[in-house]
Simulated scan of single mutants.
Amino acid sequence: MRSVAIIGAGIAGLSCADVLAKDGWRVTLFDKGRKAGGRMSSRRVETPHGEASFDFGAQYFTVRHDGFAAEVARWADAGLAVRWPHAGSDAWIGVPAMNAVVREMAARHEVRFSHHVSGLAREGMSWRLLGEGMPTEQFDAAVLALPAEQAAPILTLHDFDLARTALFARSQPCWTGMFAFDSPLPHGEDILRNHGILAWASRDSAKPGRRGPESWVVQATPQWSTAHLERSPEEIAPLLLAALQEATGAHAHMPLAHSAHRWRYALSAGTGLGCLWNEQQRIGACGDWLLGPRVECAWISGRMLGERILGAAREAA
């Protein structure tokens, strides 16, 4: 049985894992986070008016690829995903939170959370993971399901051509604010787009399958996020709140709970390559940065890499 270490347990890494595990590979995923989610993460916060829930990464996902459509149909049948017409005719969300579908995918595999992989060591024909608390076990193949900026330093030591592709695939950052209120904001729409410094604002509590107090998620424009990238969440949250209050006319509404999160690598440009793979060293990369800035692209990229790895293994057999 061949083995593979996949660094990153987001949609791309888990999609790749699905393909390889189905063919009998021993798949182990490593993720620096404490739980499944990645850029489809959700956060719960206790307030005096009950628990507020925030989808503070991807706000929804689209379904256009036939293979992904089949996967989403399965999620829908399991009650893990529903349509969100307010965001678009092909918009879907996870239920009861966006991370529901990622958690379901992760449950099918061995995922070691709170494992920050800092590098890879080539030992003979195998790979060993580097980093505090990493296992000593070796793997036949290694997959980097990480943002381009995090994959590049690891690839540089092993395949400069792959690393160069990652180095030129730059992402844009995004500051995200999360706010819960004791009453609805005086705004008739559940979604705001392109208003001042806000690229997006949505009434998260109005999404299908959601409960809890009035909750909003706001996402700043890439330009504003870049200009304020190194400021602290404590500094950013009041600025995003003021922008939300101005956009909705809710100047008198003060939040029950508030926080801000910085996504350094939020919006990928997309290289159009699909995935990267070096068969001689058996190292590769997948992620939305290799196709486009959509959840669906991450899933497709992971699947493409999994199928490419299997095809190469069959040719070598």
Rank of each mutant, 00 (worst) to 15 (best):
V4M: 12
V4L: 15
I6K: 11
I6P: 06
I7K: 01
I7Y: 00
A9R: 05
A12M: 10
L14P: 01
K22S: 13
G24R: 14
R26K: 13
R26I: 08
L29E: 00
L29Q: 10
L29C: 11
K32M: 03
K35M: 00
R39W: 01
M40Y: 02
S41R: 12
V45D: 07
E46R: 11
E46T: 12
E46D: 14
T47N: 03
H49E: 15
S53A: 04
A58R: 09
R64W: 13
H65K: 15
F68H: 14
V72Y: 11
W75G: 14
A76Q: 15
D77K: 15
A78P: 10
G79C: 13
R83M: 08
G88P: 06
A91W: 12
I93W: 04
I93S: 02
I93G: 11
P96F: 08
A97E: 06
V101Q: 00
V102K: 04
V102M: 00
E110W: 03
R112H: 09
H116P: 01
G119W: 00
G119H: 06
G124R: 15
M125D: 15
S126N: 05
W127A: 11
M134Y: 12
P135T: 03
T136G: 08
A152E: 15
A152R: 04
L162D: 13
T165W: 04
A166H: 06
R170C: 02
S171Q: 07
G177R: 00
F181V: 10
F181Y: 07
P184E: 11
L185F: 08
P186S: 09
H187I: 03
G188E: 13
N194M: 05
G196M: 11
I197D: 10
A201C: 08
S205H: 12
A206T: 14
K207M: 12
G209S: 10
G209Y: 08
G209T: 01
G212D: 00
S215Q: 09
S215A: 15
V217D: 06
Q219G: 05
A220D: 03
T221I: 07
E230W: 04
R231T: 05
S232P: 00
S232L: 08
E235K: 05
P238M: 01
L244P: 07
A247N: 09
T248Q: 11
G249I: 07
A250N: 08
A252S: 14
P255G: 03
A260L: 06
H261A: 09
R264K: 15
Y265F: 06
L267C: 00
L267R: 02
T271R: 14
E279L: 12
Q281P: 00
R282V: 12
G284E: 12
G287Y: 01
L290I: 02
G292M: 09
P293W: 06
E296D: 04
C297W: 04
R303S: 04
I309E: 03
I309M: 15
I309C: 11
R314N: 07
